[in-house]
Design a protein around this nucleic acid. Structure first.
Lengths: 146, 146
DNA sequence: GCTCCTTTTGATATTGATTCTCGTTAGAGT
DNA sequence: ACTCTAACGAGAATCAATATCAAAAGGAGC
């Protein structure tokens, strides 16, 4: 369930953006907060039920992404999954199942994460992009598909 | 353009899979070999022109992926980009433009790549996935969008 | 080159995720 | 409670991708 802390942070962020934190949007956030990885509109709808119609669900996801509360994630053909933005959930990486497409969050221990940051900084030094972020995706077969 | 070496490797792989290396498929491979990153069906079609209709282009991409010659890449909502599989193009990572979605390949120097491998191996050790592959995506703004 | 057989092609219809439209409803401030 | 604007929700529209199926092309044997 959504922690009170996260909920208050979202309330503040949405208020700053003049976006209302309505019932439907709270339901979406709550479902994503309970998930252990990014979820698509269809996956969320399955969990949430009919209390939020698909068209509203899609609009809520778009609005919350626009406000910086959600981040999109792409790993399966033709659909977008969403997760809480990193300033809410903490920096993490993903395990992606090649077989069924499900995505699971992983925390990386501080020491490893720091070494990763160094590598990314080294790479970013020689490149024409202005670096903002990095994502390490590890692909494999999940327990269910093994 | 497609190098003769890569072309011969693909010929052999497709022959082994009983899949013909037809004109349309050669055009697709050639366009992807010239690109400096993954490309979608629409992007390829723009380059290739009308000599390969979209329906055939999509089918070629699916067949070539099935045969292990192409690998899909997801970084923009609602579309799949393809690139030559790593056994053809070499292991590499990606720069993803947050703004326009374009993806550019990057080579990572051997030393850095080795450190990256170590980190991934460390992470994979404590996880319920059978690890097969890793991908480091660096997100930022490309030169055109900066 | 010709025949037969199988794979591939290409125009079109279809699916599925997502977005748009627009009249109705609900929130926030007064 | 009143007003004004943002949000909702049902359905239509869009767009990438897939399925269909008759016609064309590749390859093997003669």
């Amino acid at each position: 369930m959504t922690t009170p802390t996260i909920d208050r942070q979202i309330e503040r962020r949405l208020a700053d953006a003049d976006v209302r934190y309505t019932r439907g949007r709270r339901v979406v956030i709550s479902a994503l907060a309970e998930a252990d990885g990014p979820r698509s509109a269809a996956e969320l709808s399955r969990v949430i039920g009919e209390s939020v119609p698909l068209s509203s669900l899609y609009r809520s996801l778009a609005v919350l992404e626009e406000a910086g509360v959600l981040a999109p994630h792409f790993s399966s053909p033709g659909l977008t999954r969403y997760e809480l933005a990193e300033w809410l959930s903490g920096h993490h990486h993903h395990l992606v199942c090649i077989c069924c497409g499900i995505v699971q969050d992983i925390e990386v221990a501080d020491g490893l994460e720091q070494r990763l940051q160094e590598i990314v900084a080294d790479i970013a030094g020689g490149v024409s992009f202005s670096e903002l972020n990095h994502a390490l995706e590890i692909e494999g077969h999940c327990a269910g598909c093994a």
